[in-house]
Design a binder for these strands. Sequence first.
DNA 1: CTGATTTCTTATCATTTGTAAAGAATTGCC
DNA 2: GGCAATTCTTTACAAATGATAAGAAATCAG
Lengths: 187, 187
Amino acid sequence: MTRLFRYFDQYNTLTEGAKSAILAICTAHTIQKGRDLQPIGHTCRTIYFINRGMARIYYFKDDNDVTECFALENQIIARVESLFSGKPSRKGIQMLEVSEVVAINATQLFRLYDTFPDIERLFRKIFEAGYVETVNRLESLQFHSAEERYRDLLQTSPDILKRVPLKLIASYLGITPVSLSRIRAHH
Amino acid sequence: MTRLFRYFDQYNTLTEGAKSAILAICTAHTIQKGRDLQPIGHTCRTIYFINRGMARIYYFKDDNDVTECFALENQIIARVESLFSGKPSRKGIQMLEVSEVVAINATQLFRLYDTFPDIERLFRKIFEAGYVETVNRLESLQFHSAEERYRDLLQTSPDILKRVPLKLIASYLGITPVSLSRIRAHH
DNA sequence: CTGATTTCTTATCATTTGTAAAGAATTGCC
DNA sequence: GGCAATTCTTTACAAATGATAAGAAATCAG
């Protein structure tokens, strides 16, 4: 759990009481590659922290597997649109490598907000940062070409490119695998 | 300010003390159509509530005017990626109609978070809802066709379509005005 | 009301991206 | 190692979208 609290420290410092309250609602899991951490159709009531490994949020659009986002070690992953709306998610979370994750029970976490304002503040800041990322990604999808988006990814997250099959990258960029192959060929 | 507090009530109920603390950092403004509420390049330190009228967030990509989003009356508008990062925004806020807005000083607001946990909670929930909207929009840009996106907008926000020039709608949908014309012609 | 400006549509052609299919390369498994 | 499955690339063709330009329609200013 050391890594988790180091991650938290980037956003907000917690009192010892807050830390142990969070610890009490966390569980550690090891998940095999390819397994679903959360299945499609399930309402999101868990926030995951990735200690080791990698995951993605995915869904199906007309039978096509679409990757909405990736998460590497030292990152949080959750299906926000379900977590904050209480509605079931059409998306699932799948592990892309053998991974160790910490599951934070969101229902209990939200209850802790009443007792520990510093916990509420911590997660407010974490999700504000996620919000900013999503807005930036929206901009890139709205008015950058597929090639620009690929070069962007190459520059900002070369890790992802190394560790993930290109077909997943393609749908993440909003294009087909064939189209991505073409872009890469024009070196 | 009645409308503002009615809007707040949807998310979190405030104590009277919290309400007057917010009132103290709000100012009302009337802005003419076409005027910039916030210019491009400015760091976002204000959250706006639209009492009457309409606004958009816009920026330039290769000299093309791009609309990132619209906001109607009874909605909040802010350049989130600047507000939460403290970095200057490449985006501006422009009024699309004669409008009455309430400007909330964000620097002072964030300070109020320490004294009034219910204010922190209120804005946490407001921005969580904005986050959810942005994630849903991302999905639509990532894997829906331009035509699907247009039909979606037609169904969910016919108001916007009635009140705004189509060229702004086009860039909002991530396409050119010519392309939008074509889609509309195939009735 | 009238002329000027802006917005919208239509047409043509170029470019990008999608689809389908086939083969090459890689990975996984026994 | 060697077979099977998956992933990646390439090709050919179709569909969607972009760029440009020209004209129609709507809006605005005086």
